[in-house]
Simulated scan of single mutants.
Amino acid sequence: MKILITGGTGFLGRHLVWQLAQDGHEVLFTGRNADVARSIVLAAAKSVEFVPLEHGTQHAREQLLACSKAANVMIHSAALTSPWGSQRAFHNANVASTSEVLAACQANAIPCLINISSPSIYFKFRDQLSIREDSVLPAGVNEYARSKQEAEGLVIAGAIPLCVILRPRAIFGPWDNALLPRLLRLLRYGRLPLLRNGQALLDMTYVDNVVHAVKLSMKLAPSDTAQVFNISNGEPIAAADLFAKMAEQFGIPLHTVHRPYIVADLFARLLEGVAKLRPQWEPPFTRYSLATLAYSQTLDLSRARDVLGYSPVVTLDEGIARTAQWWKQQGLQA
């Protein structure tokens, strides 16, 4: 089977490239970083091919049309994932890229599209437990969430024979360059601030479990409508307990202090106000990034289990241990 993966030089993308190539598929992947792409190709167990492509540019649509010919599956994992950024940057990376992917699928009659979305579209600045895929979606909490929700709308309207939208929560693992560094910075802070007593329940997803969900999605029968699935490890954990597990595995002394959430939220508002006046500066934390550690957000996996046959292949504890081991093998500073 010929598979085209967008964003193949990203964290999730490289794992998709490696594991699908290992399964014997012919893999073509796109991305912006040619140096990273070379390292991915060298580490691949099988031959894979890289096509440099930057979504939202003048020639991106034509490039994607040309390289996706004869593809059986398109996996769209290219995205800008950040709690802060401009509306234009998120639109180009998340919405324009999805439009380009859909155009390629339709022009080349690609029968299967798997779109990697985000549960950030559920977020409401309050506790939410066992969120279902058919929950009423709020207005996006930030530009990232709004762009992912808009991209989902395009995918749903795209009328691809087999169209799957996956919403994996808080992906982590080796080569993570977003979530893990932020959590480690918090741990290294010295006196880790716990908001709302550190009791917020968090859902995490080890990267191999997302890849597993993608593989299962490829086996589904065509449907008249896009099929949407929540994905996580299915092991909600209190924020304080998560930090304790990470500190133990990464060998970081853990010192916590309880902080009033309302004070932290007011400070985050102030930082965001400054950042709006200084477009080149990104605040060290935002209202959203704080709130994800202060409010519970857990996903209902019933549909993924019943329809996809999904069950995590790596537990949360094992995933944290594997990630810490990789981190130390790379000689990275915890």
Rank of each mutant, 00 (worst) to 15 (best):
V17I: 10
Q19S: 10
Q19N: 11
L20P: 02
Q22Y: 06
Q22M: 05
D23I: 06
G24H: 12
E26M: 04
G31C: 07
G31K: 08
R32D: 00
R32A: 10
N33G: 00
D35A: 12
D35G: 00
V36S: 11
V36D: 08
V41N: 06
A43N: 13
A44E: 11
A44S: 15
A44L: 10
K46Y: 03
S47L: 11
V48G: 06
V48I: 04
E49S: 13
F50Y: 15
P52F: 12
E54Q: 15
G56V: 11
T57F: 09
H59Q: 14
Q63H: 07
Q63S: 13
C67L: 07
S68K: 09
S68T: 09
K69Q: 14
A70R: 15
V73K: 14
V73D: 09
M74V: 10
M74A: 01
S77W: 00
A78K: 07
A78W: 04
S82W: 05
S82F: 01
G85A: 06
G85Q: 06
G85M: 00
S86T: 15
Q87P: 01
A93H: 05
N94D: 08
S97D: 03
S99V: 02
S99E: 12
E100L: 11
V101K: 04
L102T: 11
A104L: 09
A104E: 07
C105M: 14
Q106D: 09
I110R: 12
I110P: 09
P111G: 05
C112D: 06
C112F: 05
L113P: 01
I114W: 04
I114Q: 05
N115G: 03
I116Y: 06
S117P: 00
P119R: 08
S120Q: 11
I121T: 14
K124W: 00
F125P: 03
D127C: 02
Q128C: 11
L129D: 03
S130Q: 15
I131R: 07
R132Q: 13
E133L: 01
E133N: 02
D134T: 14
D134Q: 14
D134S: 12
S135G: 08
S135T: 15
V136F: 07
A139F: 09
G140P: 06
N142E: 03
E143K: 08
E143V: 02
E143F: 09
Y144H: 04
G153M: 09
V155G: 03
A157G: 12
G158R: 03
A159F: 03
A159I: 01
A159P: 04
I160Y: 01
L162Y: 01
C163Q: 15
V164C: 13
I165Q: 00
I165D: 01
